[in-house]
């Protein structure tokens, strides 16, 4: 209570000190506030326009032979490519299926046309001779070719075509 009494007495004894000076400390504070807000709203250089992270560089379309396609089998984190009827698809996003350890791993880095058509993942579906002609898909039945077309459509929807597959010696054609 002492404190309150003390203050009241102090205030009562105070004489009127108000003035009409412009440069009182209070006005100085207000002025600087005003100046700062004016600067912030009107003059401060705006932050640079937003920029998005740079795009991934595009994959260059390539011409593969069975031999140059072979390394793209997903081993050691490399991309997983497989070929269907002369078109090379980047199936890296489906690594769980097409990569090492997946059910379709035999197709990685190979021409998978015959295997997909027959619905078989066995080794004998793949073309043995890497330097020979491409699989001409002879001997497939209409239903199997139909199945292959279905696979191709699925691949076109989901994966990128990153190249074409030709037999060794036909790269320039």
């Amino acid at each position: 209570m002492d404190y309150v009494q003390q203050r009241v007495a102090q205030m009562a004894s105070q004489t009127d000190t108000s003035s009409s000076a412009l440069l009182t400390p209070l006005n100085a504070i207000l002025l600087s506030l005003l100046a700062y807000t004016a600067y912030a709203f009107l003059l401060r250089p705006a932050p640079p326009p937003p920029s998005l992270p740079a795009e991934e560089p595009a994959v260059v379309f390539r011409t593969f032979t069975p031999r140059t396609l072979l390394p793209y089998n997903g081993a050691d984190g490399s991309p997983v490519y497989l070929a269907v009827r002369g078109r090379v698809f980047d199936v890296s996003r489906g690594r769980n299926f097409y990569g090492p350890g997946g059910p379709y791993e035999n197709f990685a880095g190979r021409d998978a046309s015959r295997g997909l058509a027959c619905g078989s993942f066995d080794e004998e579906m793949l073309t043995k001779d890497l330097d020979g002609a491409l699989d001409s898909l002879e001997g497939l039945e209409a239903s199997e070719l139909e199945a292959l077309r279905g696979w191709e459509e699925r691949f076109e929807e989901k994966y990128l075509v990153v190249g074409r597959l030709v037999a060794v010696g036909e790269e320039e054609k």
Binding site: Y3, Q6, R7, S20, T24, L31, F41
Partner: peptide, 30 residues
């Protein structure tokens, strides 16, 4: 407490016609 109280009162005790004008401009601008 006393010092704090005094300084605050002292500061706002300086309120005058200019302060009002400045304050109006500031509020209007915002």
């Amino acid at each position: 407490l006393l010092q704090l109280d005094e300084s605050v009162t002292g500061l706002f005790g300086q309120w005058n016609i200019w302060t009002s004008a400045l304050f109006t401009v500031f509020a209007g601008f915002l």
